[in-house]
Design a protein around this nucleic acid. Structure first.
Length: 151
DNA sequence: TAGGCCATCTGGTCCT
DNA sequence: AGGACCAGATGGCCTA
């Protein structure tokens, strides 16, 4: 559904005002170009990996082992459920699960990126966080709904 | 330096 | 049985 430009502008101000994103910190006065360049370019996890996950895994597993007994969640969750079956998982299976989880999170982030593109923002606004994106989308949808009903 | 955001790992649970 | 999903924990990066 195409929205006329003049409507987009007023809508943007309306929506931004509602979500309180229209407060411009002084740093944003620098100009769109600089802000775009300074903005995190890609939320994609793969670009942020510094150390290999496999090297971290060993350290993390050791840490997890030591923390296992201290974690309240690991005790509370599942302790009252019917299933007591504990899955024995090999190192290879754990790695495969990690890879699947990374892929899952990657596709989740792709969806967030797509949603970011659909939601109106000022060009020089810093990149929306995931929670901001969701909240803005909610407001945007209800705004469009109102618009539709009142025209 | 604290707080926000995010990526990643991990184990539990749900679902096929 | 195994993949998907979820949520807690952790650590890194960035900004005010």
């Amino acid at each position: 559904m195409a929205v006329p430009n003049h409507l987009q502008d007023s809508m943007l101000i309306h929506v931004a005002g509602e979500i309180n994103l229209i407060e411009f910190p002084p740093k944003y006065a620098a100009g769109p170009k600089e802000q775009v360049e300074n903005a995190p370019s890609c939320p994609n996890s793969q670009t942020r990996i510094k150390d290999t996950s496999w090297s971290r895994e060993l350290a993390d597993r050791a840490r997890a082992d030591s923390l296992m007994m201290a974690s309240p969640r690991l005790h509370s969750r599942g302790s009252h459920t019917k299933s007591k079956r504990r899955r024995i998982i090999t190192g290879v299976q754990r790695q495969a699960a990690n890879v699947r989880e990374r892929k899952r999170m990657f596709s989740l982030n792709e969806a967030f990126d797509e949603l970011r593109r659909k939601v109106p923002t000022f060009a020089y606004e810093k990149r929306l966080s995931r929670i901001e994106t969701l909240r803005l989308a909610i407001i945007y949808i209800s705004f469009m709904k109102d618009l539709l009903e009142n025209t």
